[in-house]
């Protein structure tokens, strides 16, 4: 497998088979682990970092979960490829910064990936489509248990799994769900959700462009507490709260259709019209319009547009994806032209 192979296939977490995929785009769980008797990345010198990288790579190669995986050293890949992998959520922005001695392992279906020598020696990640916290956990739990037989994870009887940053100490667990909360934003309930979330030991992040409105109404909710509660308790808490938010969003969507159907319908079809006919379009405008389409599709106001097509367009219209598709570096303005072309093509327009 090569990086370019990823371009020609859909990430499995983008399909709409996952539960509640009308509102939940994807579920991601990551586990932070470190090797015993190895300095953390920020404190290790070059040789120590290389040693850790090699040991972890060897350990993961033994795993049955990574038989056909792609093993990458970040410094060997181009800047564009790095941006491409970040856009696909296969690695963090931080991982692309200080690139020496950093590694990335990506399993065929792009559900499993491992960052080596990010902030911690090992960051396992599992991503699934829709709202599927327990399913995602069971996959990563299995990987962690198996790889833990090949690699000596640092663990203390008091503090649990030891991590470079104390926010991850204990379980090393962070689970997050990406939600599309159009109706809660439209009805100005989203601030209340933000406030409630922070009181419940969870974190909520929007994706911000220039404005104050979260870009496309996409929000990521994750657990903040990693210590003092078992993995099951942490995940159960997160699952219960997100289920409530999803129910609230659904209820509000139904109310909107009942009370403001003409207005909603107008907005959705205007957005659809723009996407189908624009010749120049920025990334943030694309996200905003796709957000409307996604809502329209769920409410049955737009026929024949499936959620997974919208998810795919969201992914491939990002800057690095556009450049990979066109196999060359493209300046921002020309990108906006290529983006508009690609969107029209995907929506079946000329």
């Amino acid at each position: 497998m090569k990086i370019n192979d990823l371009l020609n296939k859909k990430s499995e977490w983008l399909n709409r088979e996952g539960p509640k995929s009308n509102i939940a785009i994807s579920t991601r769980v990551r586990l932070a682990r470190n090797l015993k008797k190895h300095l953390y990345f920020n404190r290790a010198d070059r040789d120590q970092r290389e040693e850790t990288l090699n040991e972890v790579m060897q350990g993961i190669k033994k795993s049955k979960f990574f038989k056909n995986a792609l093993f990458l050293k970040i410094k060997d890949i181009s800047e564009l490829d790095r941006a491409f992998l970040i856009e696909r959520h296969l690695m963090s922005k931080e991982h692309a910064m200080d690139i020496d001695s950093k590694g990335l392992v990506i399993e065929e279906k792009e559900i499993l990936s491992v960052m080596i020598n990010e902030e911690d020696h090992i960051r396992f990640q599992v991503m699934q489509s829709g709202f599927n916290i327990m399913g995602t956990w069971s996959v990563i739990d299995g990987i962690d248990t198996e790889v833990g037989q090949y690699l000596p994870f640092d663990y203390s009887n008091i503090f649990g799994y030891l991590t470079s940053c104390p926010t991850n100490t204990g379980t090393g667990l962070r689970a997050s769900v990406m939600l599309h909360l159009s109706a809660l934003v439209m009805t100005e309930q989203i601030d209340k959700v933000f406030q409630a979330i922070s009181k419940l030991g969870l974190t909520m992040r929007g994706f911000y462009g220039e404005g104050t409105e979260a870009l496309g109404n996409f929000f990521q909710i994750s657990n903040q507490v990693a210590l003092g509660h078992s993995e099951m308790d942490i995940l159960d808490n997160l699952e219960r709260i997100i289920a409530k938010i999803i129910a609230r969003e659904e209820e509000t969507r139904n109310n909107l259709v009942a009370k403001r159907k003409r207005e909603i319908n107008d907005r959705i079809h205007r957005s659809f019209g723009t996407l189908k006919s624009a010749r120049i379009i920025t990334s943030s405008e694309t996200i905003k319009l796709l957000s409307d389409i996604r809502l329209g599709s769920d409410l049955g106001l737009l026929e024949g547009i499936e959620t997974d097509l919208i998810n795919e367009i969201l992914l491939v219209t990002q800057p690095a994806h556009l450049q990979k598709i066109n196999s060359k570096k493209i300046a921002p303005f020309e990108r906006d032209i290529k983006r508009a072309d690609l969107v029209r093509k995907k929506l079946g327009e000329e």
Partner: peptide, 8 residues
């Protein structure tokens, strides 16, 4: 975390 002991 509101705690200083690992459970899990």
């Amino acid at each position: 975390h509101g705690a200083d002991r690992h459970v899990g």
